[in-house]
Amino acid sequence: MKDLMRSPVVKMMVARLLIGLGTIAVISFVIYGVIELLPGDIAREVLKSQATDESVRAFNERLGLDRPFLERYFEWLGNALHGDLGRSLISDVPVSELLAQRVKNSAFLAVLAAVLAVPLALLLGILSATFRNSVFDRATGITTLACVSLPEFALGYLMILFLAVKTGLFPSLSVIDPGAPLLERIWQTVLPALTLTLIVQAHMSRMTRSSLVALFQRPYIEMAELKGLRRRKVVWRHALPNAMGPIAVVITLNMAYLLTGIVVIEAVFAYPGLGQLMVDAVARRDIPLVQAASLIFATFYVSLNTLADVIGIVTNPRLLYARK
């Protein structure tokens, strides 16, 4: 055990984990503070034109919004650590109950998109690197970069226009039902998953391509080729394992995006995920829900980033030792 703790890899992992936790703590404070700074009084935004001075006072008293900021923050953080995220201001339902199904739905979409995107990106990247500067390479480059350059909602609407409205191939709505059979849910989620695939494609396939291209210049690859090994074997056996580090980092970062950056795509496809829930909560000033959703997003993002860091360092042991 002692030996294990002395291992530089484990030390590094523990350090990264602690940095991650620290980041989440800072984020939690920012989340709690920023919402205080939103213009307009919560009570008046909730009650809209029906707000009278009396109803506003009653509202603030009922929710304890008249208490000092720091007191409320630490109480909230303490409860959140125990898994109690509070109750919705609007409907008084526990926030965790509102979140549960939405988190599952968001994860479902992210996983489906990843299952489509990762193999495709690797394949395109490898083929582009192998047939560098060919027509195929250029066409792939232009297409993937065009997709990532379009605003997300525009890409979503284009998918709906061509794959649903004009051709009727897929449903234009993705209002999935957790009770439906898996295949049906996948069918309904295809369009948003495809759109997300196109968005994360460019980054991953370009990274794969450039890592491999850099490796192909190395002497040992040249050696392998001179030995008369077949092209396929050179790529899969000799080049790819050495390129896996940076590729894995990029994949992990894109997974973080898939879980947290899909608010717009959810809205475009009416997909019942966490992002839609959060937008709705912001519009209604349902503060506990906004805070809980932000905290979940932040945790996903920081965790996956930490994972990317760890993968990056483990696959490149030079990074374990700080330069003196």
Binding site: I160, V165, P171, L173, A270
Partner: peptide, 17 residues
Amino acid sequence: LSIRDTTTRQNAVTTGD
């Protein structure tokens, strides 16, 4: 069905969803 995005909603009646 709750479809809050206007474009998506109006598309959904066009596609027959």
